[in-house]
Design a binder for these strands. Sequence first.
RNA 1: UGGGCUGUCGCCAAGCGGUAAGGCAACGGACUUUGACUCCGUCAUGCGAAGGUUCGAAUCCUUCCAGCUCAGCCA
Length: 542
Amino acid sequence: MQGNFIERHIQEDLGADTQRLQTRFPPEPSGYPHIGNAKGIWINFSLAAQFGGKCNLRIDDTDPTKENMAASVEALKDGIRWMGFKWDGFFYASNYFDKLYEFAVTLIKKGKAYVCDLDGEQLRDYRGSFTQPGKNSPFRERSVEENLNLFTRMKAGEFENGARTLRAKIDMASPNMNMRDPVIYRIIHHEHYNAPGWCIYPTYDYAHPLSDAIEGITHSLCGVEFEDHRPLYEWCVENVGGFDPAPRQIEFGELNLTNAILGKRFIRKLIEDGVIGYWDDPRLVTLAGMRRRGYRPAALHNFFEAAGVAKSIANVDISVLEQFVRDDLAQDSKVVMAVLDPIKLVITNYPEGQTEMLEMPNNPKNPEMGTRQIPFGRELYIEADDFTETPPPKYHRLYPGNEVRLAGAYFVTCTNVIKDESGKITEIHATYDPATKSGSGFSQRKVKGTIHWVCAERAVPIQANLYSYLVFDDENAEEGFVFNPNSLVVAENALAEPSIKQAAPDDRFQFMRNAFFCLDAKDSAEGKMTFNRIVELKSSFK
RNA sequence: UGGGCUGUCGCCAAGCGGUAAGGCAACGGACUUUGACUCCGUCAUGCGAAGGUUCGAAUCCUUCCAGCUCAGCCA
């Protein structure tokens, strides 16, 4: 059986009974999910779907001091739904505080946990270092009765924050720091928004494996960063005991998107500094941001599928993501023309004052999407890039003497170039051949190049503000034109989202070459923040 | 610095002792109303390095190198 290593583990563990698979996605509610988190969502949910198993959404809210919980939970739910997944169970780790407390009592009774009076600094001292083993806490050998008594009083609120902790009794000499008697309960006098009445809270290392066990999770899939925690995960499950199935933690390599803005800490800072709008800023690869940019979930699924699942950390460039976005959009999006860097093309043998309407397919790959009428006239704008006076080898676009096709219109031959006194090209002159009209069946000669264009009379300049986007050239939007230099793809659904109108600027070719956003010249003049600038900022951030 | 993990083409990634899958990118060609799309074809005597075991090694052993990660009462 082919498949990634996680799929193989699942099959080995579950045999023919793969529908027993139970996974979970356990985010901490602190910020909006981004594409990195989305990989975890995708792995857990799609594996469950693939094997006929189940996947829970569990909010890991063991730390009551974290802020912004409610909003984050909604963002998480939105993101998961948007990706097309449904959770089978929805829980909070805080739902299990009672049980977790009982488990801790069990551990104490088994002599596996003890109340420690060391403070934070002492704890660090006693823990030792990478090269030196830790020292046993002087409180390590307290009697079960004393531990029980103290732990009860911790719960009752008799002690101050940080005065005591409950620690797992494992091995202070372990080379794995996580096993040096980790703290499993701490005193925090802070009301939990979802679980009132507590002043002691379990730590992640303790709550996570046991929450998995309580929910009957069979496979706990997480990032490789938790690899060192696996022995402790297993220790908790085994020493509390009695779980069937006992959950198994398997780690996968996280996704690292290069040239993208990732990392909640950094995003938060950008928002605080006013550099970007909010978590759903389209320049971000948060689920909300990508959604506003018109990405669709299928693109993400395909992307993750192609990137694969392995133990090494994948370093994928954002252009690969964009490739998948384009592939997805190209299927059924409206394809339109626009010019980003215009230069005037005058068709000297076309009657002055005349305009005609030409028919263009909405999507060349998909004739069922119909056609639209676009205006054509004597004066057009073409892409400055599509003309050169000195063509390099294999240049098939417009240059003096060369004939090209204007997409959806006629063949034109460049006759000459008009320049101003500084030598800058102001107009390109050409003649057209009426016989070559699109759809006429003309086949006497062929051209190597086809270029896009817009009718000068009907074109409208791009709006000059930071968060502008270009408008369609279809019947509903005569005001302007959207352009995609290569794939000519525009996401119709993106423009359906009202918020998209506030969307991103950015370096149009660097950021998303074929997207529907553009950087306005005035923005750069004013020094407003562009995507590349943010990436620079990011590298200086750490 | 001790531990753990990772290291196979520019980027991902199969491979699990029997003689290096696949995808993306790139390149060559065909086709084409954009150079996109599509279709053909090319693309690792090589698997971080060096030794060793074996008839045979990316796969086993040894040593070394590089990257990531761990010393929160965060997750």
